[in-house]
């Protein structure tokens, strides 16, 4: 499935993601990592620990509706793969981000911005294996 090249929109999205990471650090002293926020939401250290995560997640989930209000269109979420692949992929992502201690937001944005060696290596690693997986799935298995 072809998708349009959207450099300005993607850059604007990236700037907002960065802004939210800076604000979360400045106000709460926390890393804006989706993995960490979600993992702590599932198994919180206490009520106040759960509350800030729940409110942050509620804000995240409201994002698409705000895009709809402003632009009149839902943001595109095109899922070209069968549901089995979403389940298998989702489970593997859950294992990987837990053992690896972060994902695209935690390692890829916040960790890279702190020049953390662990995050830089983690990001290079998952970008490489994602690329290899996409090549295998699309061009070798033809899915």
């Amino acid at each position: 499935m072809e998708t349009a090249f959207t450099p300005l929109q993607s850059l604007a999205g990236g700037v907002l993601i960065g802004l939210s990471a800076v604000l979360l650090m400045g106000l709460m002293g926390r890393i804006m990592g989706a993995t960490g926020v979600l993992a702590g939401f599932i198994a919180p250290a206490g009520l106040s620990d759960w509350t800030w995560r729940a409110v942050l997640l509620a804000g995240m989930v409201s994002g698409p509706a705000v895009v709809l209000l402003v632009t009149g269109q839902w943001p595109e979420v095109q899922v070209p793969m069968p549901r089995t692949m979403l389940i298998i992929g989702g489970f593997i992502v859950g294992l990987g981000v837990t053992f690896g201690g972060g994902c695209t937001s935690g390692h890829g944005v916040c960790g890279m911005a702190r020049l953390s060696p662990r995050s830089i290596v983690a990001t290079l690693t998952f970008m490489a294996t994602t690329g290899i997986t996409v090549f295998v799935v699309r061009h070798m298995l033809g899915l």
């Binding site: 859950g94 294992l95 690896g100 490489a128 997986t133």
Partner: peptide, 13 residues
């Protein structure tokens, strides 16, 4: 873990 995450990301998108 990071390698595994990439595999899952490549499968599910």
């Amino acid at each position: 873990g990071s390698a595994l995450f990439g595999i899952g990301w490549g499968i599910a998108g």
